[in-house]
Design a protein around this nucleic acid. Structure first.
Length: 335
DNA sequence: AATGCGGGGTC
DNA sequence: GACCCAGCATT
């Protein structure tokens, strides 16, 4: 054990104060009303890169459509994607569906190690489901937990590096090992989401504020360390948009550096030094800043073209990029 | 180890 | 409008 953790030994009741705080202050959220592993899992996957506010309506609707893991397993993938449309990161939905097929058959394994074998279950989701639904004494490590632990114990951990990240995982595991790992893990995340936030930190509400290294040493703004970022690139995309009989012409993307292999409008794309003066729509995919200049066509020919009904578009490609472009096209028409 | 995947929030 | 955010799969 490194010297860094010895600090922690001085505060052996950290887990108790956090759990007590969580039980008193937790928000009432739809997925907290149940111990059903399916619902816990669904919420964790939806919450992976999305905010609580955005997730709630999707979560409710999704469960109306697919009330059990068996319902999800037997649904066509396109229906699952449609229910996910707007949430982003659509491979999450595809993997959710794949895993549902295995889970519907055999039921949920109750340990993180077993869950980890399933598609879409990484270290975080496996531990979240096993601890929250089944009480396994394993700690979670997500962005919230990284922030809380880095500050509380004053750790300058380069958490994006796997080896360094393992140190934080160890601390989280140690806290969970005391018991009530469900409340402990959710407490860590709740604290990070509501009190120990990236900005406007509310230490006055924190159960750990009396013994927080970052607070003592005025390091709140410095921790956690920031991951170095890849510089963003400016791309100008000139899609050809042809609409006929409520159908739109798409090709399988072999020319743009984003959404590879997915059905998008045909057209041209180029990387530029700076953003163009005129554009119709702007979209962002990771480090691609995409400036879109739309060309409307009366017709389009080519053997690779697929004409997709506008009502079915979200099933073929749920990305909001296409929705944004079409919205602009209809806006132009009505002007 | 590095890259791709999207949408939303903040200032 | 510029900048920030992060879990999982793939390569």
């Amino acid at each position: 054990m490194s010297a860094k953790y010895e600090h922690k030994e001085h505060h052996k009741d950290d887990h108790k104060s956090l759990i007590q705080w969580y039980k008193k202050n937790k928000r009432s959220l739809p997925w907290r009303a149940s111990k059903d592993p399916y619902k816990i899992w669904l919420s964790e996957v939806m919450l992976q890169q999305t905010t609580v506010v955005a997730v709630i309506p999707y979560f409710e609707k999704f469960l109306e459509k697919f009330p059990t893991v068996q319902d999800l397993a037997k649904a066509p993938e396109q229906d699952v994607l449609e229910a996910w449309a707007g949430l982003g990161y659509y491979s999450r939905a595809r993997n959710l569906h794949k895993a549902a097929k295995a889970l519907a058959e055999n039921g949920f394994p109750e340990t993180a190690a077993e869950l980890l074998e399933l598609p879409g279950f990484g270290p975080y989701t496996s531990r979240a489901v096993s601890s929250i639904a089944f009480g396994e004494k394993v700690g979670v490590l997500d962005g919230n937990v990284i922030r809380v632990l880095s500050r509380k114990y004053g750790l300058k951990t380069e958490w994006w590096n796997n080896k360094a990240r393992a140190e934080l995982q160890t601390i989280s595991d140690q806290l969970a090992a005391f018991g009530q790992s469900d409340s402990l893990n959710q407490g860590l995340m709740e604290l990070g989401a509501t009190v120990c936030t990236p900005q406007k930190v509310m230490c006055v509400l924190c159960p750990w504020s009396q013994d927080c290294v970052a607070r003592d040493k005025n390091l709140i703004e410095k921790l956690p360390l920031k991951k170095p970022r890849k510089q963003s690139e400016v791309w100008v995309w000139k899609p050809l948009v042809a609409i006929k009989d409520n159908k739109v012409a798409l090709i399988q993307n072999d020319y743009a550096p984003f959404l590879k292999g997915q059905w998008i409008f045909p057209g041209e794309i180029a990387m530029e030094k700076s953003k163009p003066k005129d554009y119709d729509v702007k979209h962002n995919i990771t480090h691609h800043d995409i400036f879109i200049q739309i060309t409307q066509k009366k017709s389009l020919a080519g053997r690779n073209i697929q004409w997709v009904n506008l009502k079915e578009l979200k099933k073929v490609n749920p990305s909001s990029l296409l929705q944004k472009v079409l919205q602009k096209v209809f806006q132009k028409v009505s002007q």
